[in-house]
Simulated assay, not measured.
Amino acid sequence: MEQQLLSRFSKNLFWDADLNELDVEKHGSYIVNRVLDRGRWEDWLFIRDELYGLEKIKHIALDLRSLLPQSLAFIATVTRTPENQFRCYKQTRSKSPHWIY
C-alpha cells in the first residue's frame, strides 16, 4: 500500500532515495521538505489532500531546518503562519554577516 502511495510522486522528486525504504510516517519531514522545495503542484495537492493534510504539513514545516525562501513564503501563506515562526527562518536569519574591511 505504501509503495503505491509513493509511486504517485513525480519521478524526479526522490531520485536519491530508495522508495522501498521510505516510510510515509517516519520520513514525513523529508517528504514534506522535498515536495515544498522541489515538487510539482500535483505533488503538493497529493500530500495536502491525501497523505498528510494541511495541519500536519504545517507542524512538520514549522520544524524543518531548511527551506528555499519561496517555499517558506508559500507554506507560510497557505497556513497563515508568520514566517518568523518557522525554524528555518530563524536559522537562516541567525547567520552572522560577512565582515566588511
Results as ranks from 00 to 15, higher is better:
Asp18Lys: 14
Asp18Leu: 05
Asp18Cys: 14
Asp18His: 12
Asp18Phe: 13
Leu19Lys: 15
Leu19Thr: 15
Leu19Asn: 15
Leu19Gln: 09
Asn20Pro: 02
Asn20Cys: 09
Asn20Asp: 14
Glu21Ile: 06
Leu22Ser: 04
Asp23Trp: 03
Asp23Gly: 02
Asp23Phe: 04
Asp23Ile: 13
Asp23Lys: 13
Val24Pro: 04
Val24Tyr: 09
Val24Ile: 15
Glu25Val: 07
Glu25Tyr: 03
Lys26Gly: 06
Lys26Glu: 09
His27Ile: 14
His27Ser: 14
His27Thr: 10
His27Gly: 10
Gly28Arg: 14
Gly28Ser: 15
Gly28Pro: 06
Gly28Glu: 08
Gly28Phe: 09
Ser29His: 14
Ser29Ala: 14
Ser29Asn: 15
Ser29Glu: 06
Ser29Arg: 09
Ile31Met: 07
Ile31Pro: 05
Ile31Gly: 06
Ile31His: 03
Ile31Thr: 12
Val32Pro: 05
Val32Lys: 03
Asn33Ser: 10
Asn33Ala: 10
Asn33Gln: 15
Asn33Thr: 06
Arg34Met: 04
Arg34Trp: 03
Arg34Thr: 15
Leu36Lys: 04
Leu36Tyr: 08
Leu36Trp: 06
Asp37Tyr: 07
Asp37Pro: 10
Asp37Arg: 11
Asp37Met: 08
Arg38Ala: 08
Gly39Val: 09
Gly39Leu: 10
Arg40Phe: 14
Arg40Gln: 12
Arg40Ile: 11
Trp41Asp: 12
Glu42Ala: 13
Glu42Arg: 12
Glu42Ile: 07
Glu42Gly: 04
Glu42Pro: 00
Asp43Pro: 07
Asp43Trp: 03
Asp43Lys: 02
Leu45His: 12
Leu45Ala: 13
Phe46Asn: 05
Ile47Gln: 02
Ile47His: 07
Ile47Asn: 02
Ile47Trp: 07
Arg48Met: 11
Arg48Ala: 15
Asp49Tyr: 05
Asp49Asn: 12
Asp49Pro: 08
Asp49Ile: 07
Asp49Ala: 10
Glu50Tyr: 09
Glu50His: 04
Glu50Cys: 00
Leu51Lys: 05
Leu51Trp: 05
Leu51Pro: 03
Leu51Ile: 15
Gly53Ser: 05
Gly53Met: 04
Gly53Pro: 02
Leu54Val: 14
Leu54Asp: 12
Glu55Trp: 08
Glu55Leu: 13
Glu55Gly: 13
Lys56Phe: 12
Lys56His: 11
Lys56Ala: 11
Ile57Met: 05
Lys58Cys: 15
Lys58Phe: 11
His59Glu: 13
His59Met: 07
His59Arg: 12
His59Cys: 03
Ile60Phe: 01
Ile60Ser: 01
Ala61Pro: 00
Ala61Asp: 00
Ala61Ile: 01
Ala61Ser: 13
Leu62Pro: 01
Leu62Asp: 01
Leu62Ile: 00
Asp63Pro: 00
Asp63Ile: 00
Asp63Lys: 09
Leu64Asp: 00
Leu64Lys: 00
Leu64Arg: 01
Leu64Thr: 02
Arg65Lys: 08
Ser66Asp: 12
Ser66Ile: 04
Ser66Gly: 06
Ser66Lys: 07
Leu67Gly: 01
Leu67Arg: 00
Leu67Ser: 01
Leu68Trp: 07
Leu68Pro: 01
Leu68His: 09
Leu68Asp: 10
Pro69Lys: 06
Pro69Tyr: 06
Gln70Leu: 06
Gln70Trp: 08
Gln70Glu: 14
Gln70Gly: 03
Ser71Cys: 07
Ser71Gln: 08
Ser71Tyr: 05
Ser71Asn: 06
Leu72Ala: 07
Ala73Thr: 14
Ala73His: 11
Phe74Ile: 11
